[in-house]
Design a binder for these strands. Structure first.
Lengths: 155, 155
DNA sequence: GTCCGTGCAAAGCGTTTGCACTGTC
DNA sequence: GACAGTGCAAACGCTTTGCACGGAC
C-alpha cells in the first residue's frame, strides 16, 4: 500500500532539495514515513515499512539514507538504553524509555524533554557549551504496572 | 602492575559473595577496577586495564563478567549517545555526555542526575512506575569551547 | 566432589564498505 | 552528460554462544 500522497511527496522532495540532497525513491519514502508518523523506528521496522512500498530497497541503502537525513537535520538518530538504534523525523529529541517488563517503547510526556534540557543546560553551561540532552530510562508501563499490582507479584 | 591491594581484594570478594557470586580472578579484578576508579570504561578500555594484571583473561569472559556484575547490581552498563557501551561501578547512574568536537566523555555535575530523575519521575509516575532515567547528551567540553571561542571559528 | 565460571574458538548479527550501474539534476 | 546515490555482495567489528576443562566452594 502506497503511503505517500502526491502533495506530501512534493513537500518531502522540496525539503530534500532545500538541503542539497537529490530526491531519490529511498529518500522520499523514508522521509515520508518519518515525517508522517511522528514516531520512532528501529532500523528493521523502518526497513519493513519502506519495503511495503518498494521491496527492492536494500537495508544498506537505508543506513545510508538515514545517515544522510540525519546529517541534513531532517531526521534524528538515538539509542534506547539497551543500545538499539532508533530513528525519527526531525532532529529535536523528546526521548523515550523502555518498559522493563514488556519491552514496549514509551514516550515521555510532551514538554518534559525541554524541561530536562533546560535543567542540564543550566548545570553544565558555566563550564561547557551545551547542545542538548538525550533522555532515556526504564520503568513499568501502565499496563505492566497494573498487572504487577493486581497480581501482587514481587518484581 | 597489580592494582588491587589485599584489603580491597577482600572487600571485593565479600561483595561478590554477598550477591551469591563466586569470587574468581576475572570478577575480582573487574570489580576492583570499577570500584576503585569510579570512572566509566568502554569494554576495550576495561579489557586492557584488566589485562595489565591478568593477560590470560578473554574478552568474552569480560562480557560475561560485566553481565553478571550488572545483574547483581555491582556494576552499571549504559550507552553513550553514539551507541558505545560503557561500564562503571555501582548501578546508580549519574550520566555522561560526549564532547562533539574532541569526543571526550564528560560527567555531569554531581546531583544533577537525581534532579533530573526526580523531574522525570514526577512526570511519568501518574501513569507508570519509574525506575530511573538515563541521561546523555552532547556539547562542547570546556577546552574545546575555549578553543572555539578564541579562534572565533564557526562550528 | 560438585557445579559454576572460564578459556578457546566459532558463529551471529547489526553495520559499513567497494564497486559498477542507474537515475536525478 | 556528469555525478550523486543505489543495489548487490562481501567484509567488518562487537557481542554472543557451545563446549570441555579448571578452580571455587
Amino acid at each position: 500500500m502506497r503511503t505517500i500522497c502526491n502533495m506530501e511527496r512534493y513537500n518531502v522532495e522540496k525539503q530534500l532539495h532545500k538541503r542539497g540532497l537529490r530526491a531519490t525513491l529511498p529518500r522520499t519514502l523514508v522521509l515520508g514515513v518519518l515525517a508522517q508518523s511522528g514516531r520512532h523506528y528501529t532500523m528493521e521496522e523502518l526497513w519493513r515499512r519502506v519495503q511495503e512500498s518498494a521491496p527492492e530497497i536494500e537495508l544498506s541503502t537505508l543506513y545510508r539514507v538515514v545517515q544522510a537525513l540525519t546529517e541534513a537535520g531532517l531526521a534524528g538518530e538515538s539509542r534506547l538504553p539497551n543500545g538499539v538504534r532508533v530513528v525519527e523525523g526531525r532532529a529535536d529529541e523528546h526521548g523515550h524509555w523502555v518498559c522493563s517488563r514488556c519491552g514496549e517503547v514509551q514516550h515521555f510526556p510532551p514538554g518534559l524533554w525541554e524541561q530536562v534540557n533546560q535543567l542540564v543546560k543550566l548545570a553544565v553551561e558555566p563550564e561547557a557549551l551545551w547542545f542538548g540532552v538525550q533522555l532515556g530510562g526504564a520503568g513499568l508501563c501502565p499496563r505492566c504496572r497494573d498487572r504487577a499490582e493486581r497480581c501482587d507479584e514481587p518484581q
